[in-house]
Design a protein around this nucleic acid. Structure first.
Lengths: 216, 216
DNA sequence: CACTATAGACAGTACAACTATCGATAGTTA
DNA sequence: TAACTATCGATAGTTGTACTGTCTATAGTG
């Protein structure tokens, strides 16, 4: 197919497709002449990946380029996982996090087999520090339950990757799952908050609200 | 205190403090003359809140202004919760989500007492749609476990708010918890992923890695 | 009385993600 | 085969966001 069709199928404007090509997110098409090229299903797929990473995934173009390069490389899966993790994490300056916050995180993650450089460990310390700066209260009880939930999600993530067959499928799932998983969990969290809040404080209205959704 | 001290305590440049004032994020100081004003601890607290929302919370200035206005208002807590939820959610165009994806989400959230407009419900549908566009596979098993984890987190969130005493404390905790909770969970998820991955695939290395962190 | 610090208005910066224009050429259609 | 549309690749422009800098008149300070 030519660029206009690629653009139509993926609902992405032609100038934007060109932009992705320029930025190295999308591999060039197969040249048929000095100013013509053919694209195929792989390009369609890749554009969908790019849009998922830049949109719901919240990655910037430079970071998306890195994780795409990791998928395309033949590096082992654990390496792809590391790249995806660092990409999806808000970049936190290691030195900007104080030791006390890191110790608290380590206490919460007692028994976890993680390296000191794990992006989550650093980021969690930064978030707890910010939380304390506003809400002068110990957030450890709250955090402990987050860790419990995070373990459930992490097991689900690994299981999902295992279900894929080839190395490339697994690599793509790792990247998409890591980036979109955050957004998916955040969405379900919102829903669960309303649900828990309603059943806890207005149980008499819960049934009525349930009905409103099941019969639109 | 004067602006320079406010700036020093909060580690925020003076021009940035002025910017927050202009943008209505920070209430003006108590005027002592046409071009002098006094600030107090409430301003310090407020700047910390702003920085937490704009930094780890990932809100933009306009959205931060809305949630701060909600805290300052005397609107009831459920309303503040709603504002915070919409603020922390990636804005999704309702019509951009197709009905099939919404039905899948509703199946996953069967029995939940939530309104059809719940931001999480819409956002989850959008994310699942993006995931399917890339990874042509049913993500429902994966999602179900996310929902299970989201319930744990939502209960923790509500409990944390309940522990606060006054309406204003509760309102602030709702806002901070909603915005920073996403980042906190994402961080713990990264840590849990490495932990689960190591114990599952390289159990013999797990102990060694654990030791590396406990004895820095 | 120097000297520094405001407040507030306004302009400028830096970066990211597109979006538009252009000239030379290629494919397509009447 | 002429007219029309599409493409490539280079370059420039746009939009939006979160600051950052400059300026003037005035105020606090040693």
């Amino acid at each position: 197919m030519r660029m206009s069709e690629l653009s139509r199928i993926t609902e992405t404007p032609v100038p934007t497709v060109k932009y992705y090509l320029r930025e190295g997110l999308l591999p060039p098409g197969r040249r048929t002449s000095p100013n013509q090229a053919q694209y195929d299903d792989e390009h369609v797929r890749r554009i969908r990946l790019i849009r998922a990473l830049l949109g719901p995934g919240g990655l910037d173009v430079a970071t998306a380029r890195e994780v795409i390069a990791a998928i395309d490389s033949d590096l082992p899966l654990p390496h792809v996982f590391g790249v995806a993790q660092r990409a999806a994490s808000v970049r936190v300056d290691d030195r900007a996090v104080d030791a006390a916050a890191l110790e608290r995180v380590d206490a919460l993650l007692d028994g976890f087999a993680i390296h000191p450089e794990n992006p989550g460990r650093i980021a969690a310390a930064a978030v707890l520090e910010a939380f304390d700066a506003v809400d002068q209260r110990n957030a450890d009880d709250w955090s402990r339950r987050y860790v419990e939930a995070a373990l459930i999600v992490a097991e689900a993530d690994l299981d999902t990757v295992e279900r894929r067959v080839t190395r490339d499928e697994k690599a793509e799932t790792v990247v998409v799952g890591t980036a979109l998983g955050d957004a998916l969990f955040a969405a379900f969290r919102r829903a669960a908050q309303e649900h828990v809040s309603t059943t806890r404080y207005e149980p008499e209205r819960a049934d009525e609200i349930r009905r409103a959704r099941s019969t639109p």
